[in-house]
Design a protein around this nucleic acid. Structure first.
Lengths: 210, 210
DNA sequence: TAGATTGTTAATCGATTAACAATC
DNA sequence: TAGATTGTTAATCGATTAACAATC
């Protein structure tokens, strides 16, 4: 009963969620694990197993109700609530993430963006946000009740910068910096390492096939 | 002898490579798998096993020569050559990737960027590049000998756009679009799905721990 | 009832790790 | 030679999948 959830499950749930959204837009009310699996190139038994860690959402003989399952996954993923995001570093990547529609859609709301560069501080970004001084980060985290920091600073200041944010109670980090961060074990880090993806692609291209 | 290489190996090699670069900057000439493992939070046996798929690079009793291993991994990953990159879509993400230092450093050279938006076409990006018309994509791929396309277009035109690029002989794709792409099996796709990372983080934060 | 599809168990497959002989 | 560390084998651990009884 205390069955352990395999690590890849969270991402797959997000993929199921995306598909269900599509189905619901098309007006479908019901789907089966096998039709989802076909669409996603996954075995239907994997989808059923993944869902089974969290409950029985389907009905034997008929499948899953699109809307219902969508709402359930929303809850499982924790995106039925709004998360307050702080972008740390107003470089190219940081800037690109402000107003990134993929995020706001799912309840990740960028509340502020900070940088150390005097020339950037004060820059107005679209209508809502202004680049703020990284030295005010602590204050911002508290006032805006930031949950998640998105780290997009140069590698050499990454650890130092995130330490500051940790002091002020951030509990989640999306890390775009090509470096492993040291954090207390109750803080979650997800790495988004673009340059690793390029190298993995290159590897597969030279060892071509599989 | 026909031992199969586990999928996670490519990414780890890229991580080892990054660390070796750091070591070489510090002037270290030799390292052991256990010192690397400690640094990277990996078991030393995993590092040795990963490397062993490609050869024996170390010396018993002394370890690995930093420079030598670096060069070997460079070759294994296929980054001892320059890759010609085309950015497809001059939105925020696409723009952010032009001149992204993490890429050019490792031999991924952005040769061109295309978009469908008339207002964007012709825009000068730093000194080198101009946003070109996506309708010229085929021509550009051939003339500039593009190897890898980086897809950053809206989801609804993603498949159609990549189909064009495939026709012109692209063999690798970095996909930033939240959608599974259909490609021939000799074409490699690496997904960089930022919004999945946010959801995976959210999941871990609500199911906190582990 | 007959057909469909779930939820779950057990078997299989794949990746990591411990352990150690080989050897510098 | 003694100490260190590799390369590799075998054991373990974790994730996926096939198969099927339960049930709508």
């Amino acid at each position: 009963m205390i069955e352990k959830i395999p690590k890849p499950v969270a991402r797959r749930l997000a993929i199921y969620y995306r598909l269900l959204k599509e189905y619901s837009k098309l007006g479908l009310s019901t789907i089966s694990s096998s039709s989802m699996g076909e669409r996603l190139n996954l075995k239907s038994s994997q989808i059923r197993k993944d869902l089974s860690y969290f409950g029985g959402f389907g009905k034997r003989g008929t499948g899953y109700k699109v809307m219902e399952l969508m709402k359930s996954i929303e809850r499982i993923l924790g995106i039925d609530q709004a998360w307050h995001i702080l972008i740390i570093g107003a470089g190219k990547i940081g800037m690109a993430l402000v107003n990134y529609s993929g995020l706001s859609q799912d309840g990740f709301v960028v509340k502020a963006i900070v940088d150390a560069d005097k020339d950037k501080i004060g820059t107005l970004i679209d209508t809502q946000l202004v680049v703020e001084d990284v030295r005010k980060m602590g204050q911002i985290i508290q006032e805006k009740k930031i949950d998640i920091g998105v780290l997009c600073v140069p590698p050499d200041v990454a650890q130092k910068t995130i330490n500051e944010a940790l002091k002020c109670g951030i509990k989640g980090i999306i890390n775009f910096v090509p470096k492993r961060l040291e954090v207390p074990e109750d803080v979650m880090v997800e790495d988004v390492q673009i340059s690793l993806s390029f190298k993995a692609l290159s590897f597969r291209m030279v060892h071509n096939g599989k």
